[in-house]
Design a binder for these strands. Structure first.
Lengths: 181, 181
DNA sequence: TGCAGCATGTAATTTGTTACATGATTAA
DNA sequence: TTAATCATGTAACAAATTACATGCTGCA
């Protein structure tokens, strides 16, 4: 599943422009599948070229045509196939953890700063997700609810872990490193 | 922080070959910063070109020379700078969640399959991390312990969440989709 | 007057993945 | 004999990020 397929999936619920999709990516998806214009617009062009979506150009005064993309039956079929095929990955890539692995090379102040920053971001994630659910909960599908809760649960667990275990990072170094001089 | 910088960091603890580093990436790092030969070998070549590491070629019978890389003072300095600069990201990219967002388009059997698969993988993650800590706990730095615990805590939280909330996915669809015919 | 929002896209770059290519040693 | 381990790498490809490029509308 790549951005292209996800765009197709979002279009399975309702027609939208690239701009609209970007706003969707700024909602829930931000927290587990971020994407920007740079991937969305090319994705839509590809989907249109493959006839999985159709494009209706809506003229507007003073701005570029609004291009409203609508999924085709072939597109719907392709998306359902995509959901069936392949085992979806779930991957974490954390420079944060990679950095903390080397805590013994870092100043305590720097460590503290990183931890605080991370806790703030995780709290913001939880708050953002909660706000989305409060605002759109009625119209959200079971899948959307599940995903929202999942993201919030992970963020909360990360916060809790940091608060309960940060002391591990401030111990005296036990690993011998190469002499640098 | 990219694979190159991480390799440099690993070399700050001890000299190693690309093959050795790959084994490290198959340990703890597998769970939050995966990398394969395809990124490791080029990274080492780049680091050597930048004089951040030195290479000692050790001849062997019947196999390619073992290339043992050793960090230089300049490399050590560069790595410490890297730890100081830039706010490290912590990003999730989950095709798993993106897929489940569309649960109402999926067969219950398929859903069940995905959930089970994910629970198994998460359990394996926890077990793998626990095994690493049991085996190497004595020599692991505080940072390594923190990171190991973090990974295990996240995986455990994910498992718990799935088990407690999977029913959300099996509700009747409430979202209206486009007619496909 | 200035900023946020609407609305499109391209191009260069970065990064990493996957497949390819080779081949001896050693333990089961 | 067969599989795992040791040991190196390159090349093609895929994907996404970032920066660039443009410009009106409408609100405060």
């Amino acid at each position: 599943m790549d951005v292209k397929t996800l765009c197709l999936g979002l279009l399975s619920a309702r027609p939208a422009s690239g701009y609209d999709l970007k706003k969707e990516f700024e909602g829930l998806f931000k927290h587990f599948f971020p994407a920007g214009y740079g991937s969305i617009y090319p994705a839509l062009a590809d989907l249109a070229a493959a006839k999985l979506v159709e494009c209706e150009c809506i003229e507007q005064r003073g701005r570029p045509d609004r291009k409203l993309y609508r999924i085709t039956p072939a597109g719907m079929h392709a998306f359902e196939q995509a959901l069936r095929q392949s085992s979806p990955r779930h991957r974490l890539r954390s420079e944060f953890l990679a950095t903390l692995y080397f805590a013994d090379l870092m100043e305590p102040e720097r460590l503290q700063e990183l931890l605080e920053q991370r806790v703030i971001e995780m709290r913001e994630t939880v708050e953002d997700i909660d706000a989305i659910v409060k605002a759109q909960g009625q119209q959200m599908s079971g899948g959307a609810h599940f995903v929202a809760g999942f993201g919030a649960a992970l963020a909360a667990a990360a916060t809790r872990y940091i608060e309960q275990h940060e002391s591990l990072l401030f111990e005296q170094p036990s690993i011998k490193r190469q002499a640098t001089a």
